[in-house]
Design a protein around this nucleic acid. Structure first.
Length: 262
DNA sequence: ATGCCGGGCGAAGCCCGA
């Protein structure tokens, strides 16, 4: 048996609903981790998504942020919010156990802060959020379960993950401190699924709406699936699906998915 | 090119994203 787990920053579930429903029917992920739903829980389109055979766990917020987990299998043990700062009211983390027999897995949908401009409090917020994520990621390893931490990490890991490294050098997504924090996650024992299976550079998951970035393939790869050892042992495939980015009324991100074989 | 699009909010124009 196997499980297809995808992550996608949809940039508003309200504006993107037709695209998301079409993608669910075409790509048929077993689990979909969504970010930037930009709505409160009460306005999440649960009915339309349940009609397609998915259960929903939603951690929403008015206007900004917001994350969700969609799953064809039952969800349990749902937790919302990233531990470590009771004053943080931004909806950027939701976690759940996917009940799928031998394919069961713990998943989290992550919307890591952008951090720009770097000379404001947004950048230290990003770095502290990454420390908190590392704390949660480390705690999850103690359970020795398959875990998939998927989402918009807002981290460019290396020169080959963006179209112009010089242009990104001082950006919050690419600064050395940011990349070091990301490596801390990997050094805990997590595997970045796409890079593990692919050697190519200049393959992206985000293209700006502006300046013909999509047409010129001026993108960055910032949407990642991080796997615990027990999940990495099951990794059979990981791909970036550029299809949704080319549709009308597209999100500026495109889905990334992996297949775990039990 | 730290905003050229595109979304939210709310009903014009500003905030935000990467």
């Amino acid at each position: 048996m196997s499980l297809k787990i995808a992550t996608w920053n949809v940039n508003s579930i309200k504006a993107r609903l037709p695209n998301v429903l079409e993608w669910l029917e075409e790509a048929k992920p077993d689990v979909a981790l969504l970010q930037e739903i930009k709505t409160v829980d009460e306005n999440f389109p649960v009915m339309e998504i349940e009609e397609r055979g998915y259960n929903c766990a939603v951690h929403g917020q008015k206007s900004y942020n917001g994350v969700a987990i969609l799953s064809k299998h039952p969800l349990s043990d749902v937790t919302t919010g990233l531990p470590g700062d009771k004053d943080d009211d931004q909806a950027r983390y939701v976690e759940a156990w996917v009940e799928a027999g031998d394919d069961s897995v713990r998943v989290a949908s992550i919307y890591l802060p952008n951090g720009n401009p770097v000379d404001t409090d947004k950048y230290p917020y990003k770095l502290k959020w990454m420390d908190r994520l590392a704390g949660r990621a480390k705690a999850l390893l103690h359970n020795e379960e398959p875990v998939v931490l998927g989402g918009d990490y807002n981290v460019i890991q290396a020169d080959g993950d963006c179209y112009d490294p010089a242009a990104w050098a001082d950006d919050a997504l690419f600064k050395p401190e940011t990349r070091a924090k990301f490596r801390t996650l990997l050094n805990l024992g997590y595997t970045e699924a796409w890079r593990t299976l692919h050697n190519e550079t200049h393959v992206y998951s985000f293209w700006d709406y502006q300046a013909g970035a999509w047409q010129k393939d001026n993108g960055i790869r910032i949407d990642h699936l991080l796997l615990s050892p027990q999940a990495a042992d099951r990794l059979a495939a990981c791909e970036i699906d550029k299809g949704p980015r080319g549709k009308t009324k597209a999100s500026d991100h495109t889905p990334v998915w992996c297949e775990l074989t039990a």
